[in-house]
Design a protein around this nucleic acid. Structure first.
Lengths: 218, 218
DNA sequence: TGCTTTTTTTATCATTTGTTAAATTTATTC
DNA sequence: GAATAAATTTAACAAATGATAAAAAAAGCA
């Protein structure tokens, strides 16, 4: 067995030399398989779950890939097995991030799906991703033939609605610093995994403002 | 037939005497019956619609009534036949309005309904209201027994989600003036029917800021 | 009608957030 | 590992929004 001794390594902004005892905080983000993803939305009967599972299909795309494009009607939704993504709207000369999705979450353009109109959001993969793809045509067929799946879809939309309403309320009535602290508390992985420019946009402030807030918290 | 002649009446901030030709802008907000309300969410088959109709019950409450209270699990939802309401969160010494409902819309505490937890919002009637009440227990029974109603409920949540997400994006990336102009364009009745303090809160600004914005637009 | 209360506006000053540009740090590439 | 590019921080000033108080207007009521 061979040991590689480093004279010093940089870890979480601290320089730690090789004589220190290092307690590693493992940043391992576990994969989430399709069965667990479906279950967390709503526990389906075996038969229904099987039908839903049979229509999904594992696909992989690299970091940077745009999996869902503004200005078109999308024909698939995706469940995230591994990786992290952002939804953003094209602005004049920058872009505006309004949602992040990580393992277990669902990528869908609601506007496009529900209203059969062009969606307004792009979805970009911020890491290499493994996704379960589900065709909206298959999903519609299942919604119309299986009451459990219909209620599973209802629960999904209801839960997303609560999350979105809570973010709206937070943005309406809290200041930028409070919103950042809330994010730090409730979603620390996002801040670890996503660059601060996107985080700032998600909080509805500029990157410079976020940097100032972070400096004040030190 | 008898005529009542008024020497002058006050109308839309203008004093108009009885010799003037008055072009009335009728502020008549039509009642919306339950059948039309259900249809606008999703066209149900006759049989399903009948089942849903049979479980609703018309109730009336006066302006100022709090029909849904924070800190409890609610057992009913309501469809608005006539009137206008606001959802708000109690703050230290004021309150924060984050949603308005008018004819055709649905009053529900999603948090309370979906998670069976205490809701965070109060809902106050801003006018005398006529509402169709629907017990959540009945609704659950229908969701689990009628696939069309389950999909109707899914569509409802999906549509609400889109509206809420659009408001979030608007609050994240537009300034107060733009948001006010959007509201003026897309929901002029709200500004006519609701006092500006509540409108300001809904836009996520103070009443004083809204007043300033209105002055600039003159 | 006149009185009282509530809502809205106006004014002044404080605070927060945005803008621009440069410096620094971190990541990427050859 | 050095060079380059990208991300983040810092600084200085501008603009937007908040807080408080007072004035004006509108609404409610006896």
């Amino acid at each position: 067995m061979q040991f590689y001794l480093l004279s010093s390594i940089k870890f979480n902004n601290f320089i730690v030399n090789n004589k220190s005892i290092i307690i590693f905080k493992i940043h391992q983000f576990l994969k989430m398989d399709i069965s667990a993803i479906l279950d967390q939305i709503f526990q389906l009967p075996q038969e229904s779950k099987k039908n839903l599972l049979l229509t999904t299909n594992l696909v992989c795309y690299p970091k940077g890939h745009i999996i869902l494009k503004a200005g078109k009607v999308e024909s698939s939704i995706y469940f995230i097995k591994k990786g992290i993504v952002r939804a953003y709207i094209d602005e004049d000369n920058s872009d505006a991030t309004f949602w992040f999705g990580k393992e277990g979450e669902t990528i869908i353009s609601m506007k496009s799906y529900v209203e059969n109109q062009n969606g307004y959001e792009n979805i970009e993969l911020l890491e290499d991703c493994e996704l379960y793809e589900l065709k909206t045509a298959d999903l519609d067929r299942l919604f119309n033939s299986d009451i459990h799946i219909a209620n599973w879809g209802r629960k999904f939309a209801e839960r997303e609605l609560i999350k979105t309403e809570e973010r709206l309320i937070s943005k309406l009535f809290k200041n930028a610093s409070e919103r950042y602290i809330d994010l730090l508390k409730n979603n620390p992985e996002l801040i670890q995994r996503i660059q601060l420019g996107h985080i700032a946009s998600y909080l509805g402030i500029t990157q410079v403002s976020l940097s100032r807030i972070r400096a004040e918290l030190k």
